[in-house]
Design a protein around this nucleic acid. Structure first.
Lengths: 375, 375
DNA sequence: CTGTTAGCGCCTTCAG
DNA sequence: CTGAAGGCGCTAACAG
């Protein structure tokens, strides 16, 4: 803070009234005569006093008027990813409606297992945790704050995430169910030899490249794990086993092309590639083009996410409602804040079962799946 | 806040030490024996105490660890505009480096001349005002907070914006200079009959459509005004007067097409259209195609901003450094916060001249400008 | 290493 | 419509 002249008390002394009256001049204008109010405001102006200190008020009223948002290791990355941008748009809309600001909390360059000190220091009434890798130090730090928390996407609810009674509230999609239509499209088109290309399954650097179903079962990146297990389940039900799975740490174009190369080297006979993200799928598309494979003539490809570019290229994919996720999170948040605000010590248990909101997704048929043909 | 068990004092009593010691256990671990510290932390854990209350600490230390960001009327809009997204990416990066969170402050649905109460209530150490229309109630409310302020893009510095000594710090580009290469490209290609299509010049609903140079001179949307005056200056120096100017309130595709239609109806003989934004230019391009005008064969078109799509389509335009603006704002901010933090009452004048940072822009020649030919 | 002493600036009963 | 009093929970000296 800068050079604020005076305080409520000093203005009160100046004008010759009590602190309460000055406070009322700002917060309850109907509690004093207009003329006295004007006299007070004038004195304040003269002294350079610009109204009650927000921090002191916040200490007294026990609310900050803001919700904290935990995004990625590198905050700037969140602004390069269309999904998180859409999420933020939805969240900002619904929290603005409730009169809350949005405090974006940078996690700093992932210093091992230490939670960011900014989490403990954030002046907020609640937290949103958006797609944070495993239940690591950050989530614990958030939970330790003792304010309402809503987790979006990741980590999944059940997985030993909560420290408290029933864990934090959750908003997300059912990845395993959501990806099924894409997997089914492949199966129904007649493919029997299918490969999977995905983003990393483990938050640490380990196990990049070809992974086994056992690896998948142990993965701590729940979203990716859910998508792959969902697809494998569909394949298994169709009697398709032995599905090669290739992953890459980053979800970018170059990684995707590289992963595609690895997959086709590993299993040259695959006639279809199911990808766990659209970015990966777009890379696979480009790899196929570069080696002269026609899509969907020679190879079928599916994605996941529903990013604009993928839809534009006619990718067969699953569209997920990122903006609506943000809106849903905002709604849950304001509800939770409301509860926490009032019920400070009335009847018994303050925390009912935390809400779990699973949003629907939509399969987009596209034009990148067709029956296999011999090559 | 929720059900936090206990306070520093209660833990201190529990363990049988002073509050300071407990405080030190959290904030200055090197100030007490590891074993005592562990004893304190254990007691805290048992009681469900999760560390010092951030608000109380903030009141005491007089810092919030966050900077407020004022974006648009409708916060969600900021996440649909690539320029502001890039700006936020840059800003988040540099403020994260300084250990500050970013508090995005929604302005609510522009309720006339009332400043958002969230501005007065925000728990922040400084403010960023990003491209806010005229010097309206919001900027005044921000300035009234008495904390460091950095304005980006708009409102322009000189224009009676500041209430204080030398006004707030400023980061932006010189729009009039920046657009000159685009205007010059048109002139040098031989065009004599040029129209301008731009986004709105007035923050209120007034004067949409065809505007006069007098209107331009009075406009309170400084950025747009700067671009148009810069272009007009180049044209005037080339002896080109009587330049038709058409504006639209919104910067979207439909508005641009509509504006193009109006321009060509008004001045069917124009051989070139200078646009003040890429979005407008893209719309003009599409309008031309729809009526069978070849670009740049029949009509030359220029834009401004350097959005990806425009660059992709080969538009002749000016690229401005949005992300770098954010980084620059962040740097100025941390500097300002530092100064405000220490110098609370030493030598004379606390505020030197506020920094003014004007970033360079880059002309992108593209392929949408060519010599005119008779139609 | 530990404790004592002073507030940071405000809001909210509760009486008048 | 106004005033008095009691903390909200913490930290920053400074002395032991």
């Amino acid at each position: 803070m800068a050079q604020r002249r005076g305080t409520l008390a000093s203005i009160a002394a100046e004008v010759g009234v009590s602190r309460t009256t000055v406070s009322n001049a700002y917060n309850h204008p109907d509690q004093l005569s207009p003329e006295l109010r004007e006299r007070i405001l004038a004195a304040a102006r003269a002294r350079g006093y610009t109204g009650p200190d927000p921090t002191a008020r916040s200490l007294r009223t026990r609310q900050a008027g803001a919700v904290g948002v935990i995004l990625t290791e590198h905050l700037a990355y969140a602004f390069e990813d269309q999904a998180s941008i859409d999420f933020l748009a939805g969240l900002s809309e619904s929290s603005a409606g409730a009169g809350n600001a949005l405090t974006l909390i940078p996690l700093g360059p992932s210093q091992g297992s230490e939670a960011s000190p900014l989490i403990a220091a954030a002046l907020v009434d609640a937290f949103v945790v958006y797609s944070v890798p495993h239940s690591g130090p950050h989530l614990d730090a958030v939970l330790a704050r003792g304010v309402p928390v809503v987790v979006c996407d990741q980590p999944y609810p059940a997985a030993g995430s909560g420290v408290g009674e029933s864990g934090p509230a959750y908003v997300g999609i059912d990845d395993a169910v959501a990806i099924a239509p894409a997997a089914r499209a492949l199966v129904e088109a007649g493919h029997r030899r299918i490969g999977i290309v995905g983003k990393r399954l483990f938050s640490d650097e380990s196990r990049e490249g070809t992974v086994t179903p056992e690896d998948v079962a142990e993965a701590d990146m729940h979203v990716q794990r859910g998508r792959i297990t969902g697809a494998l389940k569909v394949f298994a039900e169709a009697g398709i086993a032995d599905v090669p799975i290739v992953t890459r740490h980053f979800n970018d174009h170059a990684s995707a092309i590289d992963a595609a190369r690895e997959l086709f080297a590993l299993a040259p006979d695959v006639t279809a590639v199911l990808c766990t993200t659209d970015s990966m799928a777009l890379g696979v598309l480009d790899y196929c083009r570069s080696v002269g494979l026609d899509v969907p003539g020679d190879v079928s490809v599916t994605g996941f996410d529903g990013v604009e570019q993928a839809l534009g290229r006619g990718l067969t994919t699953v569209v997920q409602p990122n903006k609506r996720k943000g809106e849903a999170v905002g709604r849950v948040l304001t509800e939770l804040i409301g509860e926490a605000g009032e019920g400070s010590g009335s009847s018994g248990d303050s925390s009912r079962t935390a809400p779990r909101i699973i949003l629907p997704t939509e399969f987009s048929p596209g034009q990148t799946v067709a029956p296999p043909r011999a090559r």
